[in-house]
Design a protein around this nucleic acid. Structure first.
Lengths: 245, 245
DNA sequence: CCAATCATAATTATCATATGAATTGACTTA
DNA sequence: TAAGTCAATTCATATGATAATTATGATTGG
């Protein structure tokens, strides 16, 4: 259709997502995160609707969702404004994905792994104390997949994600468990930076240490082993990639 | 309609928050978190609007915000449904506040401090490496307030919050910084559990150690000192309060 | 000229209603 | 039985009107 018979149309209606609202959410979210509104005022509700070719209902609902994620603030007369990055909810997978997908996310990748180096060793230690049979099974599964990936029989990235997620889950702490999606999102999105990192023998061996420590109820060893893994990644990032600070 | 001149009115319109939408957000959010919809189906958009005496627009926008925070999911024909708690965004201050304000939050309080014991020592270590003059100043301020509080000249809780927040901020890691609001919210909300804990001399001395380690650029010492502080809180919670596991 | 007050306009907030789209489940039919 | 059809339900979208809020500029009093 492109043309029907009359032309018109300010902009092709958004298409991403399962419906117009989520498409617009994604579109505006990306635009904000990539800094498109740093040097200009954010459009009004009516302007947004017109620019994207959707109704005000859709526009308002998308804006409200972005408000809930900390990216926007709306007040009568003052208009809708982009919030400072410090109030963006980085633990929201949408926000994190938008941030990692943009350029120059090397710093963010490093900072994210600084978080992991804090959280995952503690989660492993906790898991060593409270993990159940089924948790150990899931961790074993993850480890098996990594070993398979080593021989080219599985996707190294997905295997790595599966392992780390299984440990977080085994901690039974909802805050750590929450980081499942965050870690998954971050690892998948930043694949272009880390694609050659995973699947090495030394890496798999260290993961096995974590598994064994948890299975034998040794929190200290689990903590150390996990810290080694993430610490290595961190060193790798700091060595290979230039910071833009 | 509805009213004409007779009585009617299903429910007094929501009032909390700065406007109807935020009031409804708060009302429904609390209801979900307190488990009110565990044994019954979530109302439809039209029912919600009627029950709370607001328009469908307001209802939809509140639902969309709760969706953005991971509490709800909406699909045509299937209706709006409460998501499993594992998908709730606990790092959202609204969600966290709702959860802490309800009863039986002892476990959550412990789990939250398990997160702190992972994050804050690392943040302190990081701060020891990257903190600037102004960061140290803010940490000093927080420490001074704690010392003042020890002599009854300041609010112990607010002083404690100020100190910990200043350290998180000094780490310059946005993920840690993000936890500022989370930590503030959690500490303020859970005051009834910890009100007698703070302000002891030993506690203030340990905080001073953190400050000194950061100022003298000693990441290891900063990590240990901070870990001691949070570890003590954790022990206190586990000793004094019965778990409901 | 300055300060305080007020009026105006811009913008979001809310309401009401109509229509579209998607999904489910029952029903029909071969 | 199995596949296809149809209807009902619920969210999704569109639109127009009105209310509430408040930044900004105009006005007034001293």
């Amino acid at each position: 259709m492109a043309g029907s018979s009359h032309l018109i149309v300010d902009e092709p209606a958004v298409q991403l997502g399962r419906n117009l609202t989520y498409g617009l959410l994604d579109s505006i979210g990306r635009a904000i995160v990539t800094g498109q509104f740093e040097d200009q005022v954010f459009p009004t509700e009516a302007e947004l609707a017109k620019q994207h070719g959707v109704s005000r209902s859709v526009t308002r609902e998308a804006v409200k969702m972005l408000t809930a994620k900390g990216l926007l603030s709306a007040r009568p007369r003052q208009g809708t404004t982009v919030q400072p990055t410090s109030s963006w909810n980085l633990f929201d997978t949408d926000v994190l994905r938008w941030m990692l997908e943009r350029q120059l996310s090397v710093d963010l990748l490093r900072q994210f792994n600084e978080l992991r180096v804090a959280v995952e060793p503690e989660a492993a230690a906790l898991a060593a104390r409270v993990a159940g049979e089924d948790d150990i099974k899931r961790i074993d599964d993850g480890l098996r997949r990594m070993q398979a990936a080593e021989r080219g029989l599985d996707d190294p990235l997905e295997a790595d994600i599966a392992f780390h997620v299984s440990v977080l889950r085994a901690s039974k702490n909802p805050f750590y468990i929450q980081l499942r999606d965050v870690v998954s999102t971050a690892l998948r999105t930043s694949i272009r930076f880390t694609n050659r990192i995973k699947g090495r023998t030394a890496d798999v061996a260290e993961h096995a240490k974590v598994r064994d420590a948890i299975a034998s109820r040794d929190p200290g060893a689990a903590r150390v082993a996990m810290r080694t893994i993430i610490g290595d990644v961190l060193v790798l990032i700091e060595d290979r990639l230039p910071s833009t600070d």
